[in-house]
Amino acid sequence: MDTIQIKLSIFNGGNLTQNEVMNLRAFINQIQSPFGYRYCDYLDQRKDGSIGVKISYPRYWGNSNAFLIRSNIQTREVNKHFCESLKNHFLLRNSYISLERVDIPFTYYMENSFDFNSHSNIYKILGEVHKKKKPKGVQKTYGELLSNKHETIIYSDTKTLSGYNSKLMIYNQYQNLLSKTAEGDEIEVLLNNFEDLKGRIRIEASKRIRRNCFTNFEFSTFDILAEYLPSFKKEVFTNFLNFKIIDQIYEEKKCLLINLLKEQKALGNFNYEVIILRNASHIYDYEILRRAFNIFIENKKTRESAVTRVRKILNKYSEKENIIVMDIYSILEDIAECVEKYYIIDYTFGWL
């Protein structure tokens, strides 16, 4: 669990003075957890007199979004504390709370020998699935211009990112925090407190929420993670980690590769290394190439020899470009297992 965005109704909110607005902003921004961490951000004032607020569950516990929330016990405590805090402000103590956005992230750990950009074939396959499931959506990548390295991948159900109803963002959490941290000392503190930070790939699902508002008491007892986790996981497994569609994509890529090989062979001067390296960015997984060779080359010994040569070519390409091209399907399965098992939902504990 990461952040949520809510709308708070304000008592007599339509007639707020400038001083009251400034007071509300200061109050929200100063709400502290029992550990002394500020975890709320005042966002804006709305035309109906309500205000927008962002709540960070990780910052409640660890003063940073680098802290990993892993259970609904943690999120329930945050909701309770937040609602108790609202009682201390005369304009907020009887406010109604409307959920506007919920973000639920999962954390996958890279192998030490690879970086975030090394997983670009993973992002491409997820993009292919998303394109089939959400044809009116969009897949975008953000990174460094000169190095052409990915830092953030966004899949949205609408062409306009700001107007999304649901989206998935995959990002390098270390680089993400680095871009938001002004002082080098702060990053050193983060790395000392969260030693695994540089190895994290964050897979963050986000949804706009439309439901009836909560009273203060209702939200204080609302088990938000247990409520939304099942639907968020379903979204990920339906529109991204959908192995029925992934298998279909592998077959489609196999057929395209077979046709390419046939075309090149017909032209003469057939060279596996030239063909593979020229099309390496479109060969998401060695497995696709192996399947293509099983059909393209009928002679078993010739096929085995060709597969060995191509495997060596792809290994050299992978080492040179630091791009994963082997066992991509297995990595996708590992990520799926991570999403399935990442959070612990406890229904047995009593109210805090």
Rank of each mutant, 00 (worst) to 15 (best):
R70A: 11
R70T: 12
S71P: 01
I73R: 09
Q74D: 09
T75Y: 01
T75Q: 02
T75C: 02
R76N: 15
R76P: 07
E77H: 12
E77I: 12
V78C: 05
V78Q: 04
V78S: 04
N79M: 06
N79A: 05
N79P: 08
K80E: 12
K80N: 15
H81M: 09
F82L: 06
F82C: 05
F82I: 03
C83H: 02
C83Y: 03
C83V: 09
E84I: 10
E84N: 12
E84M: 10
S85R: 08
L86I: 05
L86T: 02
L86N: 06
K87Q: 13
K87T: 10
H89V: 03
F90E: 14
F90P: 13
F90A: 11
L91M: 10
L91N: 06
L92C: 08
L92M: 08
L92Y: 05
L92W: 01
R93G: 10
R93N: 14
N94E: 13
S95L: 03
S95N: 04
S95T: 13
S95E: 07
S95G: 10
S95V: 04
Y96M: 14
I97R: 00
S98P: 07
L99K: 00
L99W: 03
L99F: 03
E100N: 15
R101M: 08
R101I: 06
R101D: 05
R101A: 05
R101F: 01
R101H: 06
D103E: 06
D103F: 00
I104Y: 01
I104R: 01
I104T: 01
I104K: 00
I104V: 03
P105S: 04
P105G: 06
P105W: 01
F106E: 08
F106C: 09
F106V: 05
T107L: 03
T107C: 14
T107H: 10
T107I: 14
Y108D: 09
Y108I: 07
Y108F: 15
Y108H: 15
Y108E: 07
Y108R: 06
Y109M: 08
Y109S: 08
Y109K: 09
Y109L: 09
E111F: 12
E111N: 14
E111T: 12
N112H: 13
N112L: 12
S113E: 15
F114S: 07
F114V: 08
F114E: 10
F114L: 10
D115K: 04
D115S: 11
D115I: 07
D115A: 07
N117C: 04
N117A: 05
S118N: 08
S118H: 05
S118Y: 02
H119G: 07
S120V: 13
S120E: 10
S120L: 10
N121D: 04
N121G: 04
I122M: 01
I122L: 07
I122R: 00
Y123H: 11
K124E: 11
I125G: 00
L126F: 04
L126P: 01
L126W: 02
G127M: 02
G127D: 04
E128L: 03
E128S: 08
V129E: 00
V129G: 00
H130G: 07
K131E: 14
K132C: 06
K132L: 13
K133L: 09
K133C: 12
K133W: 05
K133H: 03
K133G: 08
K134F: 10
K134S: 14
K134L: 11
K134P: 06
P135R: 05
K136G: 12
G137L: 02
V138I: 15
Q139M: 15
Q139Y: 15
Q139W: 13
K140W: 13
K140L: 15
T141N: 11
T141D: 12
